[in-house]
Amino acid sequence: MRLTLHRAHLALPVALVLILGCLLPLLLLIAFSVFTVDMDAFEMVPDFSLANWAQMLTNPVFAFLIGKAVLSGLITALIAAVLGYPLALSIANLPIAWKGIAQILLLTPLYTGEIVRIYAWRVVLGSEGLINAVLEGLGLVDEPVKLLLFSPFTTHLVLLYNTLPFMVLPIWISAELIDRRLIEAARDLGARPFEAFTRVVFPLTIPGLGVGLLAVFALSAGDMLTPSMLGGTSGATPMAMIDNLFGTAFDWPLASVLALSLLITLFATASSIGFLLLRFKGARAVLQGGLK
């Protein structure tokens, strides 16, 4: 399916939203990033300066925070893919009545707010929490396992829990769209069930897997609440720092520099993921020709 020129007007509303809601703030950020703060008057003045960019590049704290966010996003996306892919395929193979139930179960966590979920996890994972109570009750541990709450483990467990539906849904849909006769054709031509999977099913679900990876990466790399409320001392994020710089510190130029740097890094990482997936044999043909 190609977007021909005479249909281009259909994209106009989205284009407007993108320009007004995304490009404009971005231009403002770029402008702010080369301004300076007059600390005496406590206001931002449009005096050109690259000092903030220099600080960004020289102070390792910023690079560390951004790197941590990217790594966090990548780890969550990879684990979500490993857990979500088989789950998505099994849902696609369920009888039709069970699919509806699976979809409700899959999406239920999303209907509760993020804050509610975070406090629920605290109740489950805390020192006085459910899991520790069970472990102690069974005599498996003498004192509460501290690692369960306020650690990188907690952060990633909850990020995974929050983002798994965004991995499962697109893979499920792409698996659902595969004509069953393609699998029969593969078997007919001599492929064992596992070969039919690797040669036919997997390549045809790469678009879904790609969407899932990108969605989970973006959601978890850009998350602030989960790490800061459940990650304890490990919970520092570039987002929280940007929040501080804009708010408490009133250093908008530095905040803009950090925000832009984070944006560029996440964008570059996401593009690399997309590019790598398109290099997979045939993924491009599927996107161009559809599944028929």
Partner: peptide, 19 residues
């Protein structure tokens, strides 16, 4: 199916779209 000396031309062909 993979061990039968039989092959099939499917209705609507079932060609692999990614190949």
């Amino acid at each position: 199916p993979e061990r039968r000396p039989v092959n099939t031309v499917f209705q609507n062909y079932a060609l692999f779209p990614h190949l």
